[in-house]
């Protein structure tokens, strides 16, 4: 009974901290469900960065100019870096990275469904940087205020680096839009294919979101899916106009009363179809990750064996 009373008191002081906008730090007491919820969200975020290297990584060897090649290489490298920051934040919750990777590879853990869409043309590299990273940034800016300290600090770092990602993507689109007729067609086609999936990145509508309510209460999430989505829709309209491309949503329309753009219906059937394994690249992305990880097993073993040998030699010498 005493234990229960103690737990209640701990939970009370945990909630008070959250209420006072104090961060929760790794050694603090936290409800098990909070820990699980964080672990799920942060590791999913980390996996997304890592799987997200693939669609653009697919263009590293083909980037159409040396400047673009250098920029893309730096960008994809950043995705790996961001994956590292996030695994690092998640590891403070007591779960080793190897377990998170095993969960990704077994399908128990998810990554952002957007990366199951194929990057088919160079225009897609532009659209991914501009729209996919753009949507991610809207979400991540909000997460800089998340209640878990290591996650919030990781987000600050990531946001600082990520704005270059969106800009390089938009710059690619701008060059295409101002280029030849074929390049303009490429830009429009990429915009058409990536616009709607980018909107879906914010997750289901608030009424249908399974994890949202409690994550908001614990301030893991700071704004709802629909609020963030609306921000992204609003900011993207003038960007599309400046490119001189056609907006993929024929119903997009300024609503002076709401001070926001009204928009057309999102095809949630497609969203769930892709999540449930019917995207073009679901299998390919996981297979790639598993293949690389397995191919690296002997290297990781060698590193461990070498370390052991060094330790033994040091011990023998003393």
């Amino acid at each position: 009974m005493q234990g229960d009373a103690n737990d209640r008191e701990l939970e009370h002081s945990f909630l008070r901290r959250i209420g006072e906008e104090q961060k929760i730090e790794p050694k603090d007491w936290m409800p098990e469900a909070y820990r699980q919820s964080l672990l799920r969200q942060i590791s999913q975020h980390a996996h997304s960065e890592v799987i997200g290297m693939q669609p653009e990584g697919n263009y590293l060897t083909r980037a159409p100019s040396l400047r673009r090649k250098a920029v893309l290489l730096a960008k994809v490298q950043d995705e790996a870096g961001h994956g590292l920051y996030l695994y690092s934040a998640a590891e403070t919750l007591g779960t080793p990275r190897s377990e998170m990777i095993a969960a990704l590879q077994s399908g128990a853990a998810k990554y952002a469904s957007i990366f199951n869409y194929p990057a088919q043309t160079w225009g897609d590299v532009g659209a991914i940087g501009w729209l996919v990273d753009g949507a991610a940034i809207v979400n991540q800016v909000s997460l800089q205020r998340t209640s878990y300290g290591p996650y919030a600090r990781g987000m600050v770092r990531i946001c600082k680096e990520e704005s270059f990602h969106q800009r390089q993507g938009y710059e690619i689109m701008l060059m295409l839009a101002q280029g030849s007729a074929a390049q303009r067609r490429m830009a429009q086609d990429s915009l058409n294919r990536f616009y709607w999936p980018a909107l879906m990145m914010f997750g289901p509508t608030d009424s249908a979101s399974a994890h949202s309510a409690r994550a908001m209460q614990w301030k893991i999430k700071r704004e709802t899916n629909d609020e963030l989505r609306q921000k992204f829709i609003d900011q993207t309209v003038p960007q599309i106009e400046f490119l001189g491309l056609q907006h993929p949503d024929p119903e997009i329309c300024w609503n002076a009363e709401r001070n926001h753009y009204d928009h057309g219906e999102i095809d949630w059937d497609e969203f769930y179809a892709v999540i449930n394994g019917n995207g073009h690249c679901n299998r390919q992305r996981l297979a790639h990750h598993i293949r690389a990880h397995r191919a690296g097993a002997w290297v990781r073993d060698a590193v461990a064996a070498h370390q052991q040998k060094l330790a033994q030699r040091t011990a023998a010498a003393t």
Binding site: L84, Y85, S88, A89, E91, P96, R97, S98, A102, G154, R157, A297, R300, D301, V303, A304
Partner: peptide, 26 residues
């Protein structure tokens, strides 16, 4: 699966400032 050791990283961003914790790595 062999897991390498976990290290914490601290960086001095410029001369005259303290080293600051920035994250970890394997």
């Amino acid at each position: 699966d062999s897991q390498l050791e976990l290290f914490e990283v601290f960086i001095r961003s410029k001369r005259g400032l303290d080293h600051k914790h920035v994250g970890s790595l394997h």
